[in-house]
Write a protein that binds this DNA or RNA. Structure first.
Lengths: 127, 127
DNA sequence: CTGCTATATCGACATCTGTCGATATAGCAG
DNA sequence: CTGCTATATCGACAGATGTCGATATAGCAG
């Protein structure tokens, strides 16, 4: 068991392994920063956009691929993409006529590990 | 290695292991549901509350322990706790004069696994 | 240059959100 | 019952957010 535990720790993404918020109180600054990222995820359209971008082949998608699947206008999609970009969740680049967006895995991994529960847990063990 | 992988899968909380949003597009309903949970996490005070509750010994805290550390009024704390509760992130119970709150690990685990990146990930891998 | 398409920005608007003070409710202590 | 403490609810208000149509900008095709 102890062995598997090591493995688990090791397989997490780099620089992301050790900050479960359920273990120690979040600092005020960190909370503000994280809240900004979660806010970007707090809209159904943005969640779907993120998911759609990530599941495109190559991990990136042209905006032209993203306006179709939604019931909202093109300016609205553009706005949501901007929110995701400013939150540091996606990157973008213009290539000729089109603009491509891709997910920044490190950002998602950061949030994911933050929400990680001691799990099965006994992990809470410590105290 | 393959063995450790099994371990990893096994240690996740039940029903939470396999839905990384970066793999397949999120459905509309699922997105609405998840956005509601992320919205609850999109405020610095709520993030700190959640973290504070979870890190209390026993994993639960009395509201009286939660009003002190913040600069906002008691009604505001009460409001935020309600938001967290309605989002399914925490549970609560009255015991005599006091009301206790605790984190619901399954909810956090659900979000955590959703944000999980294919990991090691070279995310951009393909290209 | 003149169009044409793809994307972003702007301005407006209705709705939602965080916050407060005031007040109501629940439970304990006399 | 009468107070006292802990927590929740209410009503109000300023500011943020999602959405739109109109319009601006970027790049390609003639």
């Amino acid at each position: 068991m102890s062995k598997s535990e090591l493995v688990v720790l090791g397989q997490d993404d780099a620089a992301v392994c050790c900050s479960p918020m359920v273990r120690e109180p979040l600092g005020e600054e960190a909370a503000v920063d994280l809240a900004r990222m979660f806010k970007a995820l707090s809209d159904p359209v943005r969640l779907r956009l993120l998911s759609l971008i990530a599941s495109y082949e190559g991990g990136e998608a042209c905006v032209c691929d993203l306006t179709g699947p939604f019931d909202v206008s093109q300016p609205t999609i553009s706005h949501h993409l901007k929110v995701l970009r400013e939150a540091g969740l996606v990157g973008s680049e213009r290539r000729g006529t089109w603009v491509y967006y891709w997910v920044l895995p490190a950002a998602l991994a950061k949030l994911s590990s933050l929400l990680r529960t001691p799990s099965g847990t006994a992990a809470g063990d410590v105290r």
